[in-house]
Design a protein around this nucleic acid. Structure first.
Lengths: 164, 164
DNA sequence: TTGATTATGAGACTCATTCTCATAATTCCA
DNA sequence: TGGAATTATGAGAATGAGTCTCATAATCAA
């Protein structure tokens, strides 16, 4: 059975307060804003995206704190970093989600999520073979999505273009 | 049957000259040095590593040319970029090699290569499901290697430490 | 050889991320 | 409850990989 934690009302910190306490860290106002905003974003966001959101709520919030909190959120597994080779990291909020992997269109930057338990099993098998303990993984396929292959993608629909 | 191209004597450019000609690009001395050095490195190297090697052979070689040639080498599939989340790209020479994926130890940075045809097949299946054409992929598992798990890794053996 | 084209080196520039440090806020506990 | 002790913060400087510019140089097709 899957526990679907709802973020907005009951659990706005997603368990992050407990994480901080365990680490002997402090519960502060800037962290509150960053965490709430991070968990409220749907889809992928960069540190800068998040800072823009945070900055609207608190004009004095600094980028340094956003970056620092992003690291903590990653450690606490509430978010996951995503490297789409754009020279900056994206993040994705993970509360109540499965881990998943990505298909990335080189033409339009469209990102499609996939999950495949059979692959995950084989992964485990590989790891066992090398006596390796998996903490996390990243599985990305780069290529061309249907719409781009058919020339249907409009210019305005491009998220970003991958270098090569 | 597998063609094992030997780089050193017979084919020092690994087919890069042909690639350049097809693209209407020129065969130049700086490119020669960069290509030969890149193909001569075993294991992973960064742009800076390569520049250091190139610089020894030609004091006037610029970093810009190294970066530019690295892009061309990637396009020509003679090398593959590897992102180990170190804030810089690594590359690996691919002449006469299979594509492979990586196990990365978070403690010592040790990188183990693996190949798994069954995973590749499942990958294809996933791509078909989404009507996606794969051009390349990257599959990385992060975790702990045997030696680190058993506390046998000596400090001097660390390649790099991954942030989190 | 020549002229059209493409490449080069040097260094300026970008831009994401990290670091520094003086100040401020939290938390612990007497 | 009131500090002391600890941890966080903001502001901006610093870092560093990678890119860009542009005047000059090398390549190559004819």
């Amino acid at each position: 059975m899957r526990l679907n934690i709802s973020i907005d009302k009951q659990n706005p910190w997603g368990g992050f307060e407990e994480f901080l306490k365990e680490k002997g860290m402090k519960i502060t106002r800037p962290r509150e804003v960053v965490v709430k905003e991070a968990l409220a974003v749907r889809g992928h966001f960069t540190a800068d995206d998040l800072w823009a959101r945070v900055h609207k709520k608190d004009r004095t919030a600094s980028k340094a704190t956003v970056y620092r909190t992003l690291q903590l959120l990653t450690q606490s597994r509430l978010i996951e970093p995503r490297d789409f080779e754009q020279g900056k990291l994206y993040y994705e909020q993970m509360v109540g989600h499965h881990h998943h992997d990505h298909l990335i269109c080189l033409e339009c930057g469209k990102i499609t999520e996939f999950e495949n338990p059979a692959i995950e099993e084989l992964q485990e098998k590989v790891a066992r073979k090398y006596n390796f303990t998996i903490a996390s993984h990243s599985h990305k396929m780069y290529g061309t999505c249907v719409r781009c292959r058919q020339g249907k993608t409009k210019e305005k629909e491009r998220e970003f273009k991958i270098k090569f």
